[in-house]
Design a protein around this nucleic acid. Structure first.
Lengths: 254, 254
DNA sequence: GCACTATCATAAACTAGGTTAACTCGCGTG
DNA sequence: CACGCGAGTTAACCTAGTTTATGATAGTGC
């Protein structure tokens, strides 16, 4: 994996600051959280479905997928998590894992005890709000994922995923035209809700249309415009801070 | 719709108390939140996708669906909300609607301004945590929804939805064998990620197998056991407060 | 340098679910 | 009471995506 290899929570703070306002005091308090670094090899399930957890996992480097399982053991990936993400922040208030977590490649995790995070949230309301907001962004991504998986065609689903990752890996600001993405076609299939064979066919189509080339563990976007078009991708839900207050009007006539 | 028609937030407090511990003071503060009652007719979109909102919506009576849209206007329902739910509580920290909201029948909503909720959360950390926890339950349901839509067959998807509603309408304690569910087959299709015609076919099959009968706006479960089996439904993610801390063991060898 | 394994690639046969198009039933309304 | 309209129902046909299978390629350990 690229990126630097920080052993502190600075990238997490950066992430929060992109959407929340925090005082220097509050920032210091977050950086002072006790962390326990853990190296996890690729393709390792480090949290099981419905498992009870006692700490959140900050991704210092590497990549992680959250997944659910069907009875026959098939997996549906519900989220990809990248360096800077505090995976399982939700577990602070609901310590039952909503799905398992598995590494896509060798990954460095900084474990942060729930107790410490909760203490911080009690002391600094603004930090609590920032945490809540952060988990809500994940929820927004998840909602979009449902639409993608529930109502779109194969090529659209894949294109959407590549667009989403391009934005997120670019820090929600720039669009990365090329990035590492350590997933096999089988994994992509688990994310898009289809079979590996069909992923292969669809990737071939996307490649031949000149939209994107997905090689072993890397994505290269050739035509962002048309890829976003094909993926019906609107970045609003990731960046979002616009919109009009139409509800007020609609509900005016109470 | 059945149920009583409360004009205060008591049901919301009950909901929170099922998962969080709050002092009498804190409960009083929640009940003292300013609310603005609004009657909304059935089949009305009262929040648009990506709309900016300034208040959360408590459902006093009726039922509401959250949905996302594809470019050609097809809808994917991502959640059903029932009386007692504070829909859009997430909007307090991220005031861009993550999807639209539409009523399934005549519905009474109590609007609560974000400002008031945020003030409360700042003053009472335990309340903030309870709110956060409540939104995380929605997120857990949503994650299960992705698995359902992404990896299950038609009959399973529908059965899962009927199981989920049976538990939630029963207050997460009892399983309602019979309940009002004001959705057309077309709406069920939007929720399950399939077409109306196929919903009809699948409902017929479920009926003939003696699992469940879905009439116009009501659901009658005949055989909970086999329905849950067919829907691969595990109530854990809704009720959940158990589990074992396996991660500690797994990651011990750092 | 050779076995072993995982992933990529592609083809052929099959099927769950989509599409289209009637027809029916209940219900509200002029 | 006829009419219209929305929703349920069913049938015939079609296709996107699955299943199964077989080779090609490439990294990895010995």
């Amino acid at each position: 994996m690229s990126r630097s290899d920080p052993t502190n929570l600075q990238p997490f703070v950066d992430r929060l600051l992109a959407r929340s306002v925090l005082t220097p005091d509050e920032i210091q308090a977050i950086l002072a959280l006790p962390v326990h670094p853990v190296e996890v090899r690729g393709q390792t399930d480090f949290v099981q479905v419905n498992e009870k957890t006692s700490c959140a996992c900050f991704i210092a480097s590497g990549m992680v997928a959250r997944f659910g399982e069907t009875r026959d053991g098939q997996r549906q990936i519900t989220a990809f998590h990248i360096p800077g993400d505090m995976v399982d922040l939700n577990s602070v208030v609901r310590p039952i894992a909503v799905g398992g977590l598995t590494t896509l490649c060798n990954t460095t995790i900084l474990e942060v005890p729930h107790t410490a995070i909760r203490a911080l949230a009690v002391r600094y309301p603004a930090v609590a709000e920032a945490f809540w907001r952060d988990t809500m962004l994940d929820a927004a991504i998840l909602m979009q994922w449902v639409v993608n998986v529930g109502k779109q065609r194969a090529k659209t689903r894949l294109a959407h995923i590549f667009c989403e990752m391009a934005i997120r890996l670019g820090g929600d600001r720039q669009i990365l035209q090329e990035y590492d993405f350590p997933v096999s076609q089988e994994r992509l299939a688990e994310a898009a809700g289809m079979t590996g064979v069909h992923v292969n066919r669809s990737l071939k189509a996307l490649r031949e249309e000149g939209l994107v080339t997905v090689k072993r563990y890397s994505v290269k976007i050739h035509d962002w415009q048309r890829l976003a078009q094909t993926g019906e991708f609107e970045a609003d839900y990731l960046v979002a801070d616009t919109g009009t207050d139409r509800r007020a009007r609609l509900l005016a006539g109470d």
